[in-house]
Design a protein around this nucleic acid. Structure first.
Lengths: 207, 207, 207, 207
DNA sequence: ACCTCCGGGACCGCCCGTTTCT
DNA sequence: AGAAACGGGCGGTCCCGGAGGT
């Protein structure tokens, strides 16, 4: 009969195509406004396949968070922190790298994780806990590297690493959201500059 | 025949009740998930009244932003800045006052303005411009008071007032959003503490 | 625009048309297999009207039971019992009248009340209680008339009126169901003959 | 790879497990509401197995009737009639035995055969004929034993054995259905008592 | 013999907005 | 100004069956 998949009988590829189409649709329209009909159409598959792999729209979205979005957070903000460079520099590099990659389209769509967090945290506890867990990983990554800086003597000891890590994540999310409303890359860059300046105040002052 | 309003033929009261019901519904569920049927039910009125006054769901939501949400921003973050006290202190007072009033329920629901901004900015330009205009007023209020501080000599001249104002608004929004995901008043308070500390670094150092 | 109803803006007629179309569809296919799409199509109306008047498929079906089916039970088996004739004769007349009206189509479709009772009683308590209440009215009607016969001396005192009434209703339902399976009017008539004979054994023997 | 059956490659056991799971699901929900997905899940097997053995949902249900339900009718109502005791007593014993075994759960779910008969007879001729054939066996079993009673002189000759047999089956089905709606074992017992009394009137009166 | 994967369709719910009428 | 009836349509869920593979 009809075979719409490139090569049928390839569950992993099917899953991945659904995930990608779902990510795009959800990113563009938000979770609630996203349509599974559009997702399956975009993916070139059918509702049967979607239901088989993910069980529901919610299951699909959760899988998107767990795979695509999670991976993006790790790649951009956690993996780079492993390098044995100066902690403050490492954090600043993560941020400037990300800011440097911003396109107007990306700014207009905002941060995928923050979008879902704001849309769903208040009304769905399953989503909230999943998102919170991802934020927690991010926060802990920053906390660890700041604590390392304190042990190594490059970061002031009178700051609470956890509080600062939380502040960084919150501020980055806020900047992403604010720049989305303003539809302005420039706003993002200039706000980030302030954040980077703040990060420098965390360093131990060398006489 | 039936009269469901306490006092019929009172356009202003009708408008107000619809606005309040709409604000609550939208605050709880977000704009897209909000149902006009539930709004009219909650308000005790009917769709006829709603569409007579606001024309559409979108018109209703825009009126909510223009009246209820706008008023709340002005009352909490703009009016207090008019007092002729030290600018940094004035800003800090706004923030600590707001933080002090936070209940767990409010934290769990987030900032109404930020919620709508994140949900709608990417997909609807009318909403985005309206929300951006409100953010702009907020930002300008902060910019003005910071500039006054610079003229009066209490705020450092090597900072860009607009950039800092933007940063403050973005960070406050980010903290509200992050605390919502974490469902934690404590997270909000501790992140805010960092922000307040940052504000102190803007002061001109005396001796 | 389009006006599909004969005369629009007539809520009672709209309700009635939906009820009739729903009764027919449910009678032919059963509740679960009945399609609301077919019902609205058959009625010439739309889902909006259906949802407005009945709220759900279940609400529609319950309204069908409460109005159409209930009325049919009352008209065929309760109202005639009010006549001040001999109770046993009255009951027998009800039954023979109904049997006489049977067409092959009616036999093939069964008793609307019994159909719903068998399909839904086990899985939905709301339906079950509603159906049971209707059966109870029927049963009580028979019980009352038998008790009157006992007071008047035409019915034996050594029978329990309630038990016999229950037996009659159960047997009539059973005959309707069995004739439906057999698709045979003759089976219905011959089984009914036995029931009528049984009813005669309830009379007080006149020397 | 995965083998979900305890012992794979055992066609008969596979068949039997599917039949049992299907019987349970259909008994609980009715044929149309029964889900083949749930059946395969309950059975611990997969759709591949189901469609291999039965070809379709309908084929599965027909197999359920032919094996499980059919067996239950034969065991409860036909086999016991073979004993060379008094025919009326034999029939009464069948009935009282069955009634004695009734649990509230069984009453609430009704008679499996009657359930399917009422649900499907009107809309599917294949099912109807299959069910009718089973009823016919039951009816013939009763007819035969009544006729034997007439030959042996214990049953009155002025009754039509077939008509009475039909009446008995119809009444038993009706009682089962009625008790299901009423969710009452007591209703079943008391109605049955009337039926048993009626059976006694079929005996030849001994001076 | 059995299983995963997937197709395509139909289901009911509910949506927002308009029309008609009081 | 407001109340109620109603129009179309799209939403996600879930269904049964079959094709390809082990």
């Amino acid at each position: 009969m009809k075979r719409r998949s490139v090569d049928c009988r390839n569950p992993d590829a099917t899953r991945e195509r659904l995930l990608q189409a779902a990510f795009t649709e959800i990113y563009k329209r938000g979770y609630i406004a996203a349509s599974v009909d559009r997702i399956v159409e975009e993916s070139g598959l059918t509702k049967g396949a979607l239901y088989h792999h993910f069980g529901s729209k919610k299951g699909l979205a959760r899988a998107v968070i767990d795979s695509i979005i999670s991976r993006s957070v790790v790649d951009s903000f956690l993996s780079p922190l492993g390098d044995p460079v100066d902690p403050i520099d490492a954090i600043k590099t993560c941020i400037t790298t990300k800011i440097g990659q911003l396109t107007p389209e990306m700014v207009a769509c905002g941060c995928p994780l923050n979008n879902l967090a704001q849309e769903l945290s208040a009304s769905d506890d399953d989503f909230r806990e999943q998102i919170e867990a991802l934020y927690e990983r991010w926060r802990m990554g920053l906390t660890d590297v700041l604590a390392r800086g304190q042990r190594e003597g490059s970061v002031r000891h009178d700051v609470d690493a956890i509080e600062v890590a939380t502040f960084i994540v919150a501020t980055l999310s806020g900047i992403a959201g604010f720049a989305k409303s303003a539809r302005s890359v420039d706003v993002a860059r200039r706000s980030t500059k302030i954040l980077l300046g703040f990060l420098d105040t965390l360093r131990v002052q060398v006489a």
